[in-house]
């Protein structure tokens, strides 16, 4: 399986081109890092890969096929701020169930405690919430996972905990991972190769 971006270009309505003619690919089971100065559009590029945003030029292909806009997206995204990625009026159990499957194995890997499931998002810390966001994304059985500054706001132990769980699942399922982080040491530790945007 191969996720490919061909000649991607993007700009906001009247602004200048954020980037043009970007080519990029990830293979199944590969961990690829994307670096680049802030303001270069790393986050926007990730959003295009995950189908949040549509590229103005170029196309995103999964094994040479276009990705259908409907249904479960094969590329899932986890962002920096988990507080914004869960509905504040949902209990945590419902957040997990949104992906369709309630995968207890992944929850255990990520260190999600049973007791947290009956809590509101506001009662959990950022590190705890991010585990839920990762669990939700992985339970959707994506072919690729994008981690855009996924552990930037977390302490080292939680960061290691989440990444070990993600890497283990990725190996098991032959899932590809795209990492965006400003932290060079983390990138070096995780990635098979690093590309510059």
């Amino acid at each position: 399986m191969r996720l490919e971006a061909k000649g991607i270009g993007f700009k906001y309505e009247k602004g200048p081109w954020l980037f043009r003619d970007v080519n990029f690919h990830v293979e199944a089971g590969e961990v690829v890092g994307i670096t680049g100065a802030s303001g270069r559009g790393k986050t926007t590029f990730c959003r295009i890969l995950a189908g949040f945003e549509r590229a103005l030029e170029g196309e995103i292909l999964l094994d040479g096929q276009k990705i259908l806009p409907k249904g479960m997206h094969p590329v899932q995204l986890v962002l920096q701020h988990p507080e914004q990625a869960v509905n504040p009026r949902w209990k945590m159990r419902k957040v997990l169930e949104e992906s369709g499957t309630f995968d207890e194995n992944i929850q255990r890997l990520l260190g999600i405690e049973k007791e947290w499931l009956s809590r509101w998002p506001g009662e959990l810390s950022g590190g705890e919430l991010q585990r839920f966001c990762v669990a939700r994304a992985i339970s959707a059985s994506p072919k690729f996972l994008i981690a855009d500054e996924m552990t930037t706001m977390l302490d080292a132990i939680t960061q290691a905990q989440i990444w070990q769980a993600v890497l283990e699942t990725a190996k098991e399922r032959n899932m590809g991972i795209i990492v965006v982080s400003h932290e060079r040491k983390l990138m070096e530790r995780l990635c098979d190769r690093i590309v510059e945007l």
Binding site: G111, G127, I157, T158, A160, Q164, K185
Partner: peptide, 21 residues
């Protein structure tokens, strides 16, 4: 010590569990 060992430039190994509420 656990915090130090968990850094990516060191062992990158977590300890189980989470900070108590």
């Amino acid at each position: 010590k656990a915090l130090w060992r968990a850094l990516p430039q060191n062992e990158f190994t977590p300890i189980p569990g989470a900070q108590p509420h």
